[in-house]
Every structure is written in C-alpha cells, then in structure tokens.
C-alpha cells in the first residue's frame, strides 16, 4: 500500500472519491502512467479512451428499461428475449457485448434476484455501471443465503406463496430481471411503461411501479 500521508477513509468511514482537485493519489498516478504508456505504445489513443468513457456515461438503466417495456408490450418479443437475450436486445439496437444475456422473468409465483458473489458481474451495456451496494461485501455475502431478508431491506416484501430464485452470475452470462408489469398500465406506450422500470427492479431487489408523481 502507498503511504502518501492521507487517511484512505473519510470521517464517516467511507472511502473518498478523490477527483481533479484532491491531492494526487498513488493509484491515480498509476492510472495516468498506464494510460500514457498505452497511448505511446500504440495500443490505443486518447480519443479512443475518451470515446470509451463517453460510451460508458451514455449507458444507464434506460437501455434496460426499454427492453423490459418492449417485453411487456410485445409477448412475442418477451418470448424471444427469454430464449436469446442478446439477440433480442440487438433488435432494439442494444449490443450486450461479448457476454450472453439471460433474461429471467418474474411471475405471480416467482421473484428473481441477481448477484455476483465472486466479483461484480453486471449487464453494464443494459444498466450502466453497477451501484456500489451491488459490489459490496454485504450484498454479495447475504443475497445467496438470505435473499428475502436482503429484499426486505430494499423495501420489497413478497406476497405469500411467491418463491425466490437467486441468480449467482458466476461465469459468462449476464442477467436481466424482467419485473412484473404494474397493474393499471394497460394501453400505456412503451415510453410510459419504461418509466416504471428502475435499475433496482432489473437487478431484482425491487418491483416495477408507477413512476412517482412529484408533489401529489
């Protein structure tokens, strides 16, 4: 570990997220050095790195929400999504990447939730970068053992008779939960449906719900 004179933990016990104006850390210094060496050796270019960062910034749960909304609106698409998730996403112009996508659908009898106990595998092309809690020791340790307790912490209490299925993303697959379509959304456009689909619902720690209306 580097010793640069800075306590790595903030008073609240959380790591700092140092950025431009904070004192340069050992690891930031390493990032700059690696980046420059990769450019000088012709592996990549500054423009390609900027483009990759931009691509990541452009990705977010909205992509996954589009996929779920289409599945709700079009049962044939939902069927194709379940049999070959990557190909179905491609129909919507979304490239899932080298890993294959498995879509798992919640039903009145079954609730799916996704975890990666070994690292932090996540369908980043559909949902963006994973939230901190998804990568936390606590989520990764407990979800495979007491998923219902974890769901309750996220405010998700399942009705009696609903089974839970945990998906541990151990190898080459990436998982997307297709939540249940909320009641009272018959006839909604795909755009309106997509607004019901949160990141947490697609990881499976929450249910889809009508978008919150502000101030009412």
């Amino acid at each position: 570990m580097p010793h640069d004179g800075h306590d790595p933990l903030s008073p609240s016990g959380h790591p700092y997220r140092p950025d431009q104006d904070e004192p340069l850390t050992y690891w930031q210094c390493m990032e700059i050095a690696i980046r420059e060496l990769l450019v000088e050796k012709g592996v990549t270019t500054d423009a390609a790195i900027r483009a990759q960062v931009q691509t990541m910034d452009d990705r977010g749960p909205a992509q996954g929400a589009r996929v779920v909304a289409r599945a709700w609106a079009d049962p044939d698409f939902h069927h194709r999504l379940r049999s070959d998730g990557s190909a179905a996403c491609r129909e919507l112009g979304i490239e899932v990447g080298p890993m294959k996508l498995i879509a798992v659908s919640n039903t009145p009898d079954l609730h799916n939730v996704v975890v990666c106990t070994l690292c932090s595998c996540y369908p980043r092309n559909l949902l963006g970068l994973p939230p901190d809690w998804y990568k936390s020791r606590e989520y990764r340790s407990r979800t495979v053992r007491e998923p219902r307790a974890v769901l309750r912490e996220f405010g998700t209490t399942l009705p009696e008779g609903v089974a839970v299925r945990v998906h541990d993303s151990t190898a080459d697959m990436r998982y997307l939960v297709v939540p249940m379509r909320p009641d009272g959304t018959e006839g909604w456009t795909e755009g309106a449906l997509a607004a019901c689909v949160t990141r947490d619902a697609m990881i499976g720690v929450a249910q889809a719900a009508h978008p919150k209306s502000d101030g009412i």
Partner: peptide
C-alpha cells in the same frame, strides 16, 4: 438454516 428451503439458486458451473 435456509429462510425458505424451497427457494432456489442458480449458478453457472463448468
């Protein structure tokens, strides 16, 4: 000590 022994877990295994 499973919460619900009938709940299931799936994982990819080589």
């Amino acid at each position: 000590d499973a919460e619900h022994p009938g709940d299931t877990l799936e994982a990819e295994i080589y």
